[in-house]
Design a protein around this nucleic acid. Structure first.
Lengths: 331, 331
DNA sequence: CGCTCAAATGCAACCGGTTGCAAAAAGGCG
DNA sequence: CGCCTTTTTGCAACCGGTTGCATTTGAGCG
């Protein structure tokens, strides 16, 4: 049903090659034939079939965007930025929802079937095995929001979660909190592991601090709320560093529903700075992750790999920043 | 670099057709050759190239998922459900972010270049022209969350916004509110127009009700907050029906920051029932849109159109439901 | 005006598959 | 075992493009 190259060629009275070249950047066509072809194409409403050309060029301009974070509001912003930046570069995101997929091989197969030029794994909770599986299949891949490694085996762009932990600890200490706790996400999430590490590294190096820790079962409102309700049963801390913002809001909700006040009775600091954190009803003090930079950098990297698939793997880190709002007591 | 049909054929000692047929549902292959082919494919790690085959079959199994709602938390759930349901049916979502695109022709061109089998326009704010442009290009299309029309020219799946407006009005009346206002989204959004219509239809039919209306510039927290701050300057209403949940949260935030209480001083009812509406810090009374049903139905419809592109356009409506939470005073 | 050389063009093969068709193989039956 | 029918198989053309190569065209110049 759609118009093909051949029809345009016939109408314009030239060969198919001429038409193809007219639509190929930098190909050799005289102005005269180009005019003829463009006219015919215009009249017929012709547009080249990207998939057909991908067969010979080996480029589909399709980028697999794979994630399992479909319940973290931050990721709506992430998807927004990714899709727009990709589009701006003439690339198309093929979205893969990994929520109930645990086998990297399946994702690799799926995306190879669609000959994606590259893949971006956008998730802080997905196992590094996913990115590695793509690398092994020689598909250019970048793990965005992945775990920082000093000897990366796959391209990683994100933040230093250990440093974020330290930053949270220093912030709480500077506010004079002495009884301080970590309320992590899932114990096995690398982000939780790393944040915890940095957090306690600083706290343990400080005298007179009483610490404790616990873990929510997911980075979610419900998990945060449930865990905090539990904590409030017995001798809660003065301040908590929560695994992420959604978890923090769950915790806030638990605290408020017990009739306690934030920050007067308990302080909370989150991580991510999702859009809602600044909503006055939430007004969460948190650590901002520079998602725009992470995303731009990820795309740059995956684009660079299109030309140089064997590019040596690197880890790119962006610094985070404490955003002061209303859930910690003033200095 | 990836393994091709030919290589498998050579290794298995059969023709290329035999290999192709082995991987084609319902094709005629003897068990013996199928075994041989599968063995060879296995050893070589062969998987058929979906894009190449689409060239002859005319099916890519690609579905364009186009939206401009990348700032409404509800849409994270929407994307989650869409991508999962599509995947479950063996379809792949090609995501298009229309945030800064106003010309339907561009989207059509783009998606035609990628030979998508069908398109889902998922947006309540996008002009119906987008869906129509696809229809005119003879690309199967469904407008999800689109405007209900009694004489639909394009497949539409969604809710009856007029009825939602009535529902909101009845709810407010039943709580004894007499001074009632509409705080809409953008004036030109069809969802706002329709909700307003139903809302005032009921209110105007009731005696002794004082009404007023105003419009936020977007379905966003900031717009809702700004508008409500303005309203609070002079003689606010007793209760507001807000354009959607995000707007409602903005309004709530404005009210609270002025030292007023909800629902004691002012009542709010939203629309959508996004995940955060139930967060205790927000606890928004709202009208639930059955997004799961809308999405499943949309996909069913687009799938049905793959087989019957000329299917007569229909509008599918789902009923909404008031979700009682804490932002309206009790009966 | 003829010559050289670069630019433009068309031919034909190819990308990785599918499929109609005719030939070959297998199965059924007397 | 031979004959007829059904199933399986391979050939070759095709899907909608791209591209290397040889040929033609045309510009530039003495």
């Amino acid at each position: 049903m759609p118009v093909t190259l051949k029809e345009v060629a016939e109408k314009a009275g030239v060969s198919r090659s001429a038409v193809s070249r007219t639509f190929t950047e930098g190909a050799s066509v005289s102005l005269k034939t180009r005019r003829k072809v463009e006219k015919a194409a215009q009249e017929l409403g012709y547009h080249p079939n990207a998939l057909a050309s991908s067969l010979t060029t080996g480029r589909t301009k399709l980028i697999g965007l794979i994630s399992n974070n479909f319940h973290n509001p931050l990721f709506l912003e992430v998807f927004d930025l990714f899709t727009r930046s990709l589009q701006d570069r003439g690339l198309r995101p093929l979205l893969v929802n990994l929520t109930d997929e645990t086998n990297p091989a399946n994702s690799v197969r799926l995306l190879r079937q669609y000959s994606v030029d590259g893949v971006i794994v956008a998730s802080s909770t997905l196992s590094p095995e996913f990115a590695k599986a793509f690398r092994d299949a020689r598909v250019p891949v970048v793990h965005s929001f992945g775990r920082f490694a000093s000897a990366p085996s796959v391209h990683v762009v994100g933040i230093d979660n250990v440093e974020c932990g330290r930053m949270a600890a220093r912030t709480l200490l500077s506010r004079g909190y002495r009884k301080i706790a970590f309320l992590g996400g899932p114990k096995e999430a690398t982000s939780t592991i790393d944040r915890r590490l940095g957090f306690f590294e600083v706290l343990n190096a400080t005298d007179g601090i009483e610490t404790s820790e616990s873990f929510a079962t997911a980075y979610s409102f419900d998990a945060g709320r449930a865990e905090m309700l539990q904590l409030l049963e017995a001798d809660p801390a003065e301040a908590y560093f929560c695994g992420d913002d959604v978890l923090s809001v769950g915790a806030l909700s638990a605290i408020q529903s017990k009739g306690l006040r934030v920050p007067e009775d308990i302080g909370i600091i989150g991580l991510n700075d999702m859009e809602m954190a600044r909503w006055e009803n939430i007004d969460l003090t948190t650590i901002r992750q520079p998602i725009r930079q992470i995303i731009d950098s990820s795309i740059e990297l995956v684009v660079a790999m299109l030309d140089d698939p064997d590019r040596y793997p690197e880890a790119r880190l962006f610094s985070c920043e404490v955003i002061e709002r209303g859930t910690l007591r003033p200095r």
